[in-house]
């Protein structure tokens, strides 16, 4: 398809008549996931832009980023690695490894979320309240939004994992596992970007 093709002409028509199937060589669910990730990217870009713009104003007081964030980041990386292992196991048809990979991926993701909550508690204990300063407010807001997207991912993860445990064939669950992994990697990249922004300011 190009800007020069004339869809009403016989010559073009003969080519078009043979075309069938999707425009993209992906399963439908993956196409939807790609668009979803685009939407989420825009969402976090806008939060970041707002962060940068708000930061320039006089009352901004940087907060002491809790060191637990580094550990959490480690959990998230491990989570992604485990999910990827589940994917490669699924491609090889090793059902037990897929289960293990998914279970580990979910467990590390949960550990990440608990760790993020710990970071909140530490900040509160240190007196960094949301209403106190925009830097604090942004920290809570951005980590909460990221955590919510992680929770959404865990809903999809639960569905795929439940199907695995019910003994579905690996081939049937493979797409679900792959999509979960893609989303996990995506959220990891988003987090690395946000984390870099938060600790550098």
């Amino acid at each position: 398809m190009s800007i020069l093709d004339k869809p009403w002409m016989a010559e073009r028509s003969a080519i078009d008549n043979a075309v069938s199937g999707g425009s993209l060589n992906f399963p439908k669910a993956r196409v939807a996931l790609i668009f979803l990730m685009a939407v989420i990217t825009v969402l976090f870009m806008l939060f970041s832009v707002a962060y940068k713009m708000r930061m320039e104003l006089a009352d901004w007081r940087a907060l002491a980023d809790p060191s637990v964030l580094w550990i959490n980041t480690g959990f998230l990386i491990l989570s992604s690695v485990a999910m990827q292992w589940a994917v490669s196991s699924a491609r090889k048809g090793k059902a037990e490894n897929v289960k293990l990979g998914m279970a580990l991926g979910g467990a590390f993701a949960l550990a990440f979320l608990i760790g993020q909550y710990m970071a909140w508690l530490q900040l509160r204990a240190a007196g960094f309240y949301a209403a106190g300063n925009p830097a604090n407010a942004f920290f809570y807001l951005i980590t909460a939004m990221h955590g919510l997207h992680m929770l959404g991912g865990l809903v999809a993860w639960t569905r795929s994992t439940a199907r695995l445990w019910r003994g579905n064939d690996v081939a049937d669950v493979k797409l679900g596992v792959e999509l979960c992994a893609t989303y996990w990697h995506f959220l990891l990249v988003v987090w690395l970007g946000l984390f870099a922004m938060l600790i550098s300011t």
Partner: peptide, 24 residues
């Protein structure tokens, strides 16, 4: 809207019948 929107774009891109190219 996001739930509906993901549906619309995916349907347009992936579920057209035979011969229905984008430029048709």
């Amino acid at each position: 809207f996001t739930m509906g929107g993901l549906n619309y774009v995916t349907t347009v891109l992936q579920a057209r019948t035979r011969g229905m190219t984008l430029m048709r």
